Lab assay of single mutants.
Amino acid sequence: TTITITINGEELRIRGDHEEIHKILKAWEEDHNDEEIVRLIRELAER
C-alpha cells in the first residue's frame, strides 16, 4: 500500500503494510499533533 500525505507543504509518500498505514491514519483521526504524525511517517519512510 502506498499513500501520499502533504503536511505543512511537505509531501510524504509512505509505503507500508495495512497495519502500518492504519496506525498513521488512526493517529491522525485521534487528532494527534502534526509533529507526532510526521515522526510516524518518517519512521516508515526510512525503512
Rank of each mutant, 00 (worst) to 15 (best):
L40K: 15
E36C: 03
I5W: 00
E46T: 09
T6L: 12
D34K: 13
E46S: 11
T4G: 03
G9D: 05
R15I: 15
A45W: 03
D31L: 11
E29F: 13
T6A: 06
R15K: 10
L12K: 03
R47Q: 14
W28G: 01
H22Q: 09
L25E: 02
I7D: 00
T6Q: 07
L25F: 04
K23R: 12
D17M: 09
E43G: 07
E20M: 13
L44H: 03
E35T: 09
T6N: 14
N8T: 03
E11L: 12
V38M: 13
E10M: 05
H22V: 08
E10D: 06
I41H: 01
L12F: 14
D17W: 07
I37P: 00
T4Y: 05
E29H: 08
L25G: 02
I41M: 04
E35L: 11
A27G: 08
T4Q: 05
E30M: 07
R47H: 09
E35W: 09
E36A: 14
A27C: 09
N33P: 06
R42M: 10
A45I: 15
R47K: 14
E46K: 10
W28E: 00
R39E: 07
E19D: 14
R15M: 15
H18D: 08
L25A: 05
A45M: 12
T6R: 13
D31M: 13
E11D: 10
I3K: 05
E19H: 11
R42G: 06
T6E: 06
I14G: 01
T6S: 08
I21H: 01
D31I: 06
E19K: 14
I24C: 02
L40V: 11
D31F: 09
V38N: 06
E46N: 06
E19N: 11
A27S: 12
E35D: 11
N33S: 11
I41Q: 00
W28L: 14
V38G: 07
T6G: 02
A27D: 05
I5R: 00
I3Q: 03
E10R: 07
G9S: 03
W28C: 03
I21K: 00
T2M: 13
A27P: 01
I14L: 12
E43C: 06
E30C: 03
N33K: 06
H18M: 12
L12I: 13
E29Q: 11
I5Y: 00
T6V: 15
E36R: 11
L44M: 11
E29P: 01
I24R: 02
I14M: 04
E35M: 13
E11W: 04
K26W: 04
L44D: 01
I14W: 03
D31V: 06
G9V: 01
N8Q: 09
V38S: 05
T1C: 12
I14T: 01
N8V: 03
G9L: 03
E10F: 04
T1G: 09
G9P: 00
D34L: 15
N8C: 07
N33E: 10
A45E: 06
L12R: 04
T1H: 15
I37N: 04
E35Q: 10
R13M: 15
A45H: 09
L25M: 09
L40Y: 01
H18N: 11
H18C: 14
I37D: 00
I14H: 01
E10A: 06
W28F: 13
G9I: 03
D34Q: 09
